[in-house]
């Protein structure tokens, strides 16, 4: 029974990781860059929810405002910081992304000052009880949102014109450009979707644990990045799989007292093992370098 509870909790936190990982993996697949500021978008979303709630707005409005703000922020960051570096060395882009992450954290710190506010209004209390077995509403919500996002995104990529253009850009940007696809627009759309997902992930985190700090997104961001690599970076189902896997491992590791202190070590060793055994990730495409 305990194992089952740990498993369900793991699926739930894994769902959150998966949604964050989608942002990483899509941006990597299409813009070929690692957006390390992605985790901090989550936290900025939290700050927006906090300010809306402080102004007596209702939770639904807060979430909506966070999604809109994050989309605008994500697109702006892309336009201001990343676009001028398109074609630059990947190291330069990486450093820019890391700086952007610290910039966002510092701005949030200025905004939050010394506070670590509790957004109690976002909290989803209560649970479904089946005998002594219990599933929180927040867990059910996270799982449901994860599934909906997964299905919607897959359908979008497979059937919509923009989605297919995204696949084309991720496979070969130059060829896509020659075929008349506006790659800049596609990259903008990718950042917009990724940032919206980050805001949603932020809500899913806060509805369980409502304390907002300026580093709220950094560890989940890094774990989601690991999840994206485990699943195969660039692959949408891979990000889902990696996220869920990481969440379940984390939860089970926490539930075993001997292993609990080493939970993060356990999680990241999975990354190392995957990189050793299957460098392109579980669902990643093996690519042979031509010399």
């Amino acid at each position: 029974m305990d194992f089952l509870t740990a498993l369900i909790n793991g699926l739930s936190s894994g769902g959150t990781y998966a949604i964050i990982a989608l942002g990483y993996t899509m941006v990597y697949g299409i813009a070929k860059m690692l957006n390390f500021a992605h985790g901090d978008i989550i936290m900025i979303g939290g700050c927006v929810m906090y300010s809306v709630l402080s102004a007596k707005g209702n939770p639904l409005l807060a979430i909506l405002a966070a999604v809109v703000f994050c989309v605008v922020l994500g697109v702006t960051i892309e336009k201001l910081a990343y676009k001028p570096l398109r074609g630059a060395a990947s190291l330069a882009v990486l450093i820019t992304a890391i700086s952007m992450s610290y910039l966002l954290q510092s701005v949030a710190q200025i905004y939050l000052k010394s506070g670590t506010p509790a957004l109690s209004a976002l909290r989803l209390e209560g649970s479904v009880n089946i005998g002594s077995f219990r599933i929180d509403y927040s867990t059910i919500l996270t799982l449901a949102v994860t599934i909906v996002v997964m299905v919607a995104l897959s359908l979008f990529v497979k059937y919509s014109k923009t989605g297919r253009a995204m696949v084309a850009v991720s496979e070969d940007r130059d060829a896509a450009l020659l075929m008349g696809i506006n790659t800049n627009f596609i990259i903008t759309i990718t950042f917009a979707i990724g940032s919206a997902l980050a805001a949603i992930a932020g809500y899913l985190m806060l509805c369980k644990a409502p304390i907002l700090t300026n580093t709220l997104g950094s560890m989940p961001g890094i774990k989601a990045f690991a999840a994206a690599v485990i699943g195969g970076i660039g692959s949408i189902p891979g990000a889902m799989l990696g996220g869920i896997l990481l969440g379940v491992v984390e939860s089970i590791s926490y539930s075993i007292p001997v292993l609990a202190p080493f939970t993060e070590a356990v999680e990241f060793s999975i990354l190392i093992i995957i990189l050793l055994v299957r460098p392109s990730g579980i669902l990643g495409k093996m690519r042979r370098e031509k010399v």
Binding site: T5, N9, S13, M205, A209, M219, P257, A260, P261
Partner: peptide, 13 residues
């Protein structure tokens, strides 16, 4: 006993 590490915020387990 139960413990956590780093900036973990989800304490369900």
């Amino acid at each position: 006993e139960a413990s956590f590490v780093g900036d973990a915020t989800d304490f369900s387990t």
